[in-house]
Simulated scan of single mutants.
Amino acid sequence: MPIDQHGDTTLEGVSIRGLPKVSLHDHLDGGVRPQTIIELGDAIGLEVPAAEAGELADWFAERSDSGSLVEYLKTFDLTTAVMQTAEGLTRVAREFVEDLAADGVIYGEVRWAPEQHLGTGLSLEEVVEAVQSGIEEGEEAAEENGRDIRVGQLITAMRHTDRSLEIAELAVAWRGRGAVGFDIAGPEDGFPPSRHKVAFDYLASEFFPATVHAGEAAGLDSIRSALIDGRALRLGHGVRIAEDLDVVSRAGDEVLVEFGELARWVRDREIPLELSPSSNLQTGAIERWGTEMADHPFDLLYQLGFSVTVNVDNRTMSRTSLTRELALLAEVFEYDLDDLETFQLNAAAGAFLPIEEREELIELIAEGFER
């Protein structure tokens, strides 16, 4: 079946785009519309590699499909360049929320690093305020179009810089005003969460939740550090937890697996894995298992009872949507609507919301899938 970023796919006669969804791993600077990049770039005299939105979308897709996280991250130089003013940040955030709503998302968490948007003299407070304004405008626009959506900020520190404590304090200061959690992002290999232990200790003392990029470009030690040093309640990607699984035998649909202690801990504690199938292929995160979607350990982790969630990571770079990711998984692994609902319920349960609001979200998902 044809699957594209902006199209829709039916499963069991039901529109996947129309199903209620939860997005936990979605980068603001990874979801900027190509046309917006062209327009904002023109306003600041930025040289953009294509003059037409479709051509620019092609450029992102080609550059991102490198098999290297480091090369993948280089494409963000262009998107962050047009996100250095309050006006640019607000517009990007507003359109981001509108795109989520059009994708059927009813709750989303958008992660972004304020320290990367200070190029024109804005303060950390000012950039967070600009993004929050855009989020609220996007929520209002979605409501006017008959869609209900709520979006919270995951304030993110860059793991290769030394501002994590300052960014953690910023995140806590914005609790109740839009910020729902904290993250570290950027080059993973060589920059373990333990480098930011002081920031994570502070967040723990404030009872402020954290998710940590781990198990993407680095392996089990990175995941271990995320859980111990970062006190992560979720794992950003976390796909390489499958390295701690030893497939002993296969007989038809039956798979005998021996768990390592780390994998068993993550599975038994129901620590959500923020898996991003297309992105994991592009960055080489699953190269140990292969280079095709069918090689992704997503299904193995799901069948073994891990709390798997489905995410886009970066809509622009991966030229994808949550609808597309779900459709791809359904096609490759022959999932049905019950499977897709499980992924959304896992995400809702792992959302950085009070339990009462998570329960309401779970009810909305159940009702939407039942309809």
Rank of each mutant, 00 (worst) to 15 (best):
S23L: 13
L28H: 11
T36D: 06
E39S: 12
L40Y: 04
L40F: 05
D42G: 14
G45V: 10
A51K: 14
E55D: 15
W59Y: 13
S64E: 08
S68E: 08
L69M: 10
E71I: 00
Y72L: 06
L73E: 05
T75C: 12
T75F: 01
T85P: 05
T85Y: 00
G88C: 04
G88D: 03
R91Y: 05
R91E: 12
V92M: 01
R94K: 12
F96W: 08
V97Y: 02
W112D: 02
A113C: 07
E115I: 03
E115V: 06
H117Y: 05
H117W: 05
L118G: 06
L122M: 15
S123E: 10
V131A: 09
E139P: 00
A157D: 07
M158I: 15
M158K: 11
T161L: 12
D162M: 02
R163A: 10
L165I: 04
W174F: 15
R175G: 01
G181D: 08
F182K: 06
G186P: 10
D189P: 00
G190R: 14
P192Q: 08
H196R: 08
V198Q: 14
F200H: 12
D201G: 00
E206F: 02
F207H: 15
F207E: 15
F207T: 14
A210W: 04
A210P: 00
G215N: 07
S222M: 14
S225T: 08
A226N: 12
A226H: 12
A232C: 11
L235P: 03
I241K: 05
A251H: 13
L256V: 15
L256M: 11
V257K: 09
E258G: 04
F259Y: 11
F259K: 05
D268C: 06
E270Q: 15
E270V: 08
I271A: 04
P277M: 06
N280P: 02
T283M: 04
A285E: 07
I286K: 11
R288Q: 11
R288W: 10
M293T: 04
A294R: 14
P297V: 01
D299P: 01
L301I: 05
G305A: 07
V308N: 15
T309Q: 11
T316C: 09
T316N: 15
T320M: 07
S321R: 07
L322E: 08
T323G: 09
E325C: 00
A330Q: 05
F333G: 06
Y335K: 02
D336N: 13
D339L: 01
Q344N: 11
N346M: 11
A348T: 12
A349T: 14
A349Q: 10
G350N: 05
P354M: 05
E356G: 13
E357I: 04
E357D: 13
E357W: 02
E360Y: 00
I362V: 09
I365G: 00
A366E: 15
A366N: 11
E367G: 00
